[in-house]
Simulated assay, not measured.
Amino acid sequence: MLTLGNLFVLMLLATGGAWLWHSHGLRERALARVKQHCAKLDVELLDGNVALRRITFARDANGRKRLARVYNFEFTVTGEQRHPGTITMFGAHTALIELAPYPFEIKTPPPSANVIEMSQWRQEHNKWKQ
């Protein structure tokens, strides 16, 4: 026979299972956001993984304290060094993605055929003024 105590334990287990299922969905959403961010910055997400670091209260953009999940991940630029990063989530919404300082190359555009040296430009324009 089902007693009130057994029903309470069953409801407690169901609530715990639902919370774990929901947490897994939030972790997958955090992973997708980190992948997008890394692709945008042209860095490589290592291990294709985010790991829950802590659940804490953090301030949102309006200054209110909200329950937040902080996930850790690692990324690389050169393939030789690992750099840490964190993502903070308020429920399903991304609050902040932080990457540790990392080296990057400044990509300069290739020189175009329309580049004119300053001395040449001055000579041409001084001819017309005289």
Rank of each mutant, 00 (worst) to 15 (best):
Q36P: 02
C38K: 08
L20Y: 15
I116P: 02
A100D: 07
I55Y: 07
W128L: 13
G91D: 06
A51L: 13
A30S: 01
R69F: 02
R54F: 13
R64M: 05
A92W: 04
A39W: 06
A92P: 03
W128E: 14
W19R: 04
H24R: 09
E74Y: 13
T86S: 01
P103K: 02
T94P: 05
L26N: 11
R59H: 11
P111R: 11
I116N: 01
R122Q: 12
Q36K: 02
P109E: 14
L96Y: 04
V50Y: 04
H125V: 03
K35A: 14
H93E: 15
H37L: 07
V70I: 09
E124M: 08
A58G: 08
I106D: 04
A18I: 06
D60C: 02
H125K: 05
E74H: 08
D60A: 05
Q36Y: 09
G25N: 08
A58L: 14
H125Q: 09
R59A: 11
E80S: 03
K107A: 10
D47V: 00
L41V: 13
G85I: 13
K127Q: 03
K65F: 00
K35I: 08
H93L: 15
V43Y: 09
T56W: 15
Y71G: 05
I97Q: 03
G16N: 11
P110Y: 11
F104K: 09
D60W: 07
A61I: 04
I55P: 06
K129T: 12
A95Y: 12
V115H: 08
K35M: 08
E105Q: 03
A92M: 00
V70T: 01
H83W: 12
P111N: 01
Y102K: 04
Y71P: 00
A18E: 01
G48A: 12
A95P: 00
T76F: 02
L20V: 09
T76L: 05
E44Q: 15
